[in-house]
Amino acid sequence: GQQQAGQPVEFNHAINYVNKIKNRFQGQPEIYKAFLEILHTYQKEQRNLKEGLVTPGYKPLTESEVYSQVAKLFQNQEDLLSEFGQFLPDA
């Protein structure tokens, strides 16, 4: 496999970011849940792509679609959204 060992900088940034979102949406757990769901879907599709499990006619989520879905969730949280952009390969 091409699995990379955890890179401390990216990993720590991701931990801090997820923690920040979790705290920010403590009163709105459905928003946090939806965020997790978007990432989960993206991750699952990336894995399928790598393994060649492509369903004909099915278009997996692109990074910009992930970004726009998250943008809808984080409407009034510009700081969270711009920080999210720092994680995306080509947002």
């Binding site: 940034h13 991701a14 931990i15 997820v18 979790k22 997790l36 989960h40 990074e63 994680f87 995306l88």
Partner: peptide, 27 residues
């Protein structure tokens, strides 16, 4: 200390792999 559920950890994993991809692209 953080109180992370498996779903939280999965999000951390996804975000950090995205960030690593981004870094690889920028190199």
């Amino acid at each position: 200390s953080y109180d992370f559920t498996p779903a939280d950890s999965s999000a951390v994993f996804t975000l950090s792999s995205m960030a690593m991809q981004k870094r690889d692209q920028e190199l």
